[in-house]
Design a protein around this nucleic acid. Structure first.
Length: 789
DNA sequence: GCGTATAACGCATGT
DNA sequence: CACATGCGTTAT
């Protein structure tokens, strides 16, 4: 209680908050940590804001004591600067982090590497592992032995493999925050699967081989090295091209690494053939809600505990072996569980095929217009400076614009804006009952004071700069893989790359003011998506499932009216919806009405309440309620479907998407009303969005299959944005590939082998462009001859 | 007392 | 209102 109440009270009681009071009458001596050198600067209080605008927020932490600018590395090698109280003896400390030097002329300077795996340097396990007689080190094998091993790999009944990191741990070890570089692979070839028990960790017929994943520098490519690299490559090819079972935990990471490592010899199309299974995926399929932090946890949950005493993350060889062995049995166990729960078809028909698709996607690079990026970064920085100054002026004091707490005290305790508009309700923060400084609140306040408007604009600019522009810049600068691959597959989405999905769709208008004599204003538009460009001679092609969610709702609810709307492939669906229920003709529907219709529909799908809807729509709650009722009455089957879903979920505790993906909702029968309602909304939501994700995944797989089996096609998947697939296509193939994509995606309406028959046609919109920001619609003539379809 | 890591929070973006 | 990610501040 003290902690929660103390701080605001304390700040409120003193006129100037203690920590960030402006330095009125003091000179600040501060040391600026530069690149490998130290500069002592003395700031005049008045000059502080204007002079050091580039990193304006550093200044405001200056207090009565000297504060030191410090650079720390976070998220890759992105530099974070902040002021810290300095010790009295300023000169003595020299933090190691100051000696950061940006890499010069790095080979990735013009590319944004999605995956950057630094080359392996240390050769940890060879000593340890090969001292164990059971392991064959690929470096020490004779040519004959290598041939034998290859043959063995071809004959083995099952292959179990894991990546080995430089610090000696494997993928089966403890999850690490910063995954060390990969230095090799450990492959266990199992024979004679019949009649063996999980207890036998290794049998005489089994072979264990360690493949070093390391490129020999060209100047040292002696005969032996070369042959060893070739052997590793052949082994990988064997693993990936054969039809035998391959088990690997986090198989996607493995495939990606392999592709990235042998990008000369191992073409991305080749990974399609592999029959790889991943316990992580199967476990996730069994229960998407529960997430495992590491392999060990997964093992305990789904297999058995006795191994809990032996830590898997140790570097003991015998334990690594038993880990591999347990991996195999865990996979078997999970497979049978999948089968008994009716999820096998989904697993084998879809999820397993997703692994290579994603690996191929993630091992590809996207080109970035670096010059434009830098330009934008500078521009945004200027704008931020300016806005910050305005904000300080409006507030009458210097404060940290990015800090919500400081903003809160200014808005509500110094300016007391909330007293001026008591009629309107101001939102509170969720966890603590404090005044919110969110967008909604600031919008309410902007009539009373100029500050909120400035803050809003500042936030917009700041968001774009910090997250997108600088984020990408730092990705390019650093060799460290900046957590580009996040976690694993979730119910609705497929793993993503960093911030692709959150890149603003609309360009941002910025007025750049220049104080050269008379005021000169220059309007510049910044479009973050335009930074991404295809390779030379290639074009981006985006394929978007039009209104999948609504179409799926129509299918699931079987509402006759809704179905009828979709039978007309030409008309705009939302326009028709709006005209239908507002009682006017199609031509009369304004874009505004259309937008309203869209909002209403999706709000209903998501189960939004009246108040929420009114907030989004910007109309009164009653009106919003009317809209909602009207919609529900027009399409009577929709609410019926929602009720059906909820009831079914109450009964069995889970819901199934169209392809049989399961979502368990433990809270569905909770006594707590709000918790239960939330679960019910989740159930309905999952039915629609989960099914949409299924369709999208299927589309990715099918297109990948077609492309990889057609040598003349070279289109590559770049990114997946929910309902949209982004491909990079050679200019000459655009039309052909576009037609192929469209027909493939629309053919997903009927998938006989999976028992899916949608009652609505699927519509796909195509667009293409030379940058992601400027995509224009592309119409494919259906009559055009298409060789592959 | 100083410096570093981490969790929690608040706000933003996308579909 | 569902889901997701990411950044920056603040408290511990």
């Amino acid at each position: 209680q003290q902690q929660n109440c103390n701080i605001p009270a304390k700040i409120g009681s003193s006129r100037h908050p203690p920590k960030w009071r402006p330095p009125h009458s003091l000179q600040e001596k501060a040391r600026e940590g530069g690149v490998g050198e130290q500069i002592i600067k003395t700031f005049e209080p008045a000059a502080v804001p204007s002079e050091k605008q580039a990193d304006a927020r550093m200044i405001f932490r200056v207090n009565a004591q000297p504060y030191v600018l410090k650079q720390t590395h976070q998220r890759g090698s992105k530099i974070q600067k902040s002021w810290h109280k300095s010790s009295r003896n300023v000169s003595k400390q020299t933090p190691a982090s100051v000696t950061y030097k940006p890499p010069k002329n790095h080979s990735l300077s013009h590319q944004w590497a999605k995956i950057v795996e630094p080359k392996a340097k240390a050769r940890y396990p060879t000593e340890t592992l090969t001292s164990d007689l059971r392991i064959k080190d690929s470096g020490k094998l004779s040519t004959d032995e290598k041939m034998q091993m290859l043959e063995k790999a071809g004959q083995a009944k099952a292959l179990v493999l894991t990546m080995v990191y430089q610090d000696g741990t494997t993928q089966l070890g403890q999850e690490q925050k910063l995954t060390p570089p990969v230095c090799g692979l450990l492959v266990l070839m199992m024979n004679d699967l019949d009649g063996r028990t999980p207890e036998d960790s290794l049998q005489p017929n089994d072979s264990l081989v360690y493949l070093k994943l390391e490129h020999t520098p060209t100047w040292a490519q002696q005969h032996t090295h070369q042959s060893q690299e070739l052997f590793t490559r052949d082994m990988l090819l064997q693993v990936l091209s054969c039809s035998q079972l391959v088990v690997c935990y986090k198989a996607k990471d493995f495939l990606r690494t392999a592709l990235q490592f042998y990008k000369e010899d191992l073409k991305w199309k080749q990974v399609i053939g592999c029959n790889i299974q991943d316990p992580q995926v199967s476990a996730w399929l069994l229960d998407p809600v529960y997430t495992f932090s590491c392999y060990k946890e997964l093992l305990c949950k789904h297999y058995k505990q006795p191994t809990s005493s032996s830590a898997l993350d140790t570097k003991k060889v015998s334990q690594v072996i038993s880990g591999l062995s347990s991996l195999y049995w865990l996979n078997m166990e999970l497979c049978s569980k999948l089968q008994s729960q009716g999820l096998w078809q989904l697993y084998s028909g879809m999820e397993v095929n997703m692994i290579p698709v994603l690996a191929a996607m993630e091992s590809h690079h996207i080109h970035v217009d670096k010059a434009a990026l830098q330009r934008t970064s500078d521009l945004l920085g200027m704008k931020m400076k300016q806005l910050e100054q305005e904000a300080h002026q409006a507030a009458g004091q210097i404060f940290l614009v990015t800090s919500n707490t400081q903003l809160r005290t200014i808005l509500f305790e110094k300016l007391r804006l909330h007293e001026q508009c008591e009629k309107k309700k101001l939102p509170k923060t969720i966890n603590k009952q404090q005044q919110s400084t969110s967008e909604a609140a600031l919008l309410q306040l902007q009539d009373f004071h100029p500050l909120p408007k400035i803050i809003l604009e500042y936030r917009q600019v700041h968001k774009i700069k910090s997250t997108f522009v600088d984020g990408i810049l730092s990705c390019m600068m650093s060799k460290v893989s900046p957590q580009l691959v996040s976690g694993f597959i979730t119910a609705k989405r497929i793993p993503k790359m960093q911030n692709f999905q959150a890149l603003p769709r609309q360009p941002l208008q910025i007025t750049k003011k220049q104080f050269i004599q008379g005021k000169e204003e220059e309007v510049v538009t910044v479009h973050p998506r335009a930074m991404f460009i295809p390779q030379k001679g290639w074009t981006f092609l985006a394929a978007d499932f039009c209104q999948v969610e609504l179409r799926l709702l129509a299918h699931l609810s079987s509402d006759p009216e809704l179905l009828r709307i979709f039978t007309n492939p030409q008309a705009d669906v939302f326009t028709m919806l709006a005209s239908k229920w507002k009682g006017m003709s199609d031509e009369e529907v304004s874009p505004e009405d259309r937008e309203h219709a869209k909002r209403v529909v999706y709000s209903v799908v998501y189960g939004a309440g009246r108040e929420r809807l009114s907030g989004i729509l910007g109309v009164s709650a009653d009106q919003a309620g009317q809209f909602q009722d009207r919609f529900l009455q027009t399409y009577r089957e929709v609410p019926a479907f929602i009720q059906r879903t909820i009831q079914l979920c109450h009964k069995q505790g889970y819901v199934l998407s169209i392809m049989g993906r399961r979502r368990t909702l433990p809270n569905i029968n909770s006594p707590d009303w709000s918790v239960r309602m939330q679960a019910e909304r989740q159930a309905v939501n999952f039915m629609v969005q989960g099914s949409a994700a299924d369709l999208c995944k299927m589309a990715m797989i099918r297109i990948f299959h077609i492309v990889s089996s057609t040598p003349s096609l070279s289109a590559r998947l770049i990114a997946q944005l929910h309902d949209e697939l982004l491909y990079e296509v050679e200019d000459s193939q655009v039309d052909r590939f576009a037609a192929l994509v469209k027909s493939t995606m629309e053919s997903l309406q009927h998938m006989d082998h999976l028992g899916v028959h949608l009652k609505v046609p699927l519509k796909v919109a195509l667009s293409s462009g030379k940058s992601w920001g400027s995509m224009s619609e592309l119409h494919v003539c259906p009559a055009s001859p298409c060789a592959s379809c």
